[in-house]
């Protein structure tokens, strides 16, 4: 586990909110971007399975921060703000993706293969692809709870806040998601034999 970079977990060090003016806000947002954007794009890729939409979502989050820079009360809260914006952006993108899938129903109905470049996707490995495909097939609530819990390491209370559901529902969604994922993977394993 050591050496794995967690998404955007480092302290905001390069920014001070007291620096006035546009130059400062641009510099501040740019510094945050350099430090955290990759981690946030990674989070969005896990949620969406699409590198390009993930980058768009993260860009939108940073642009939102830039727009509201003057209202930021504490620089150390910039990262939670961004992370929250990315999660919201992912939800919105998934809704749009589903709408597209519905339009294309029968032709390109929700495929297990994400809209990632084939080259990058090949690096993931067959075993992981199977898990990611199964993850994507889960109901939204279960998938999001699992990603927040296991990829981001969020606590149940934090997941409850992010998803706006109760702690009991977080527990249920997480455990049901794990159970469903396990069943799908077991099914996949046995069909390969």
């Amino acid at each position: 586990m050591d050496g794995v970079e967690a998404p955007g977990f480092r302290e905001v060090s390069a920014v001070t909110r007291d620096t006035p003016g546009l130059v400062a806000s641009a510099a501040g947002v740019t510094a945050l971007y350099r430090e955290h954007a990759k981690g946030l794009v990674r989070l969005a890729v896990v949620m969406l399975g699409d590198r390009y939409i993930a980058e768009d979502v993260v860009h939108e989050a940073f642009l939102g921060l830039y727009r509201h820079w003057g209202g930021l009360s504490d620089a150390s809260r910039a990262l939670p703000y961004l992370r929250s914006s990315v999660l919201n952006g992912c939800r919105s993108a998934l809704r749009k993706q589903r709408a597209r899938d519905n339009v294309r129903a029968g032709a390109l109905a929700r495929t297990a293969v994400p809209l990632e470049s084939a080259e990058a996707w090949a690096l993931v490995g067959e075993e992981h692809r199977e898990v990611l495909a199964a993850l994507k097939r889960l109901p939204d609530r279960q998938r999001e709870a699992l990603v927040l819990r296991f990829y981001l390491g969020m606590s149940e209370d934090e997941i409850a806040a992010a998803m706006r559901i109760s702690r009991g529902t977080v527990k249920s969604a997480t455990s049901r998601g794990i159970a469903a994922l396990g069943r799908q993977l077991k099914k996949g394993d046995s069909s390969e034999r």
């Binding site: 794995v4 998404p7 546009l22 806000s25 641009a26 947002v29 740019t30 971007y33 954007a37 990759k38 794009v41 990674r42 989070l43 890729v45 896990v46 399975g49 590198r51 993930a54 980058e55 993260v58 860009h59 940073f62 642009l63 830039y66 727009r67 820079w69 990632e116 990058a120 996707w121 690096l123 993931v124 490995g125 075993e127 992981h128 692809r129 199977e130 898990v131 990611l132 993850l135 699992l146 990603v147 296991f150 990829y151 794990i178 994922l181 396990g182 993977l185």
Partner: peptide
């Protein structure tokens, strides 16, 4: 299952290496 999920999400995340630059508008 949890360990497989952890490994798969991290593997997916690690496909992201370089990302494009942020282009901010002239002012907010």
């Amino acid at each position: 299952v949890e360990e497989r999920l952890l490994a798969a999400t991290r593997a997916a995340a690690e496909t992201v290496d370089e990302i494009r630059e942020l282009e901010l508008p002239a002012f907010p």
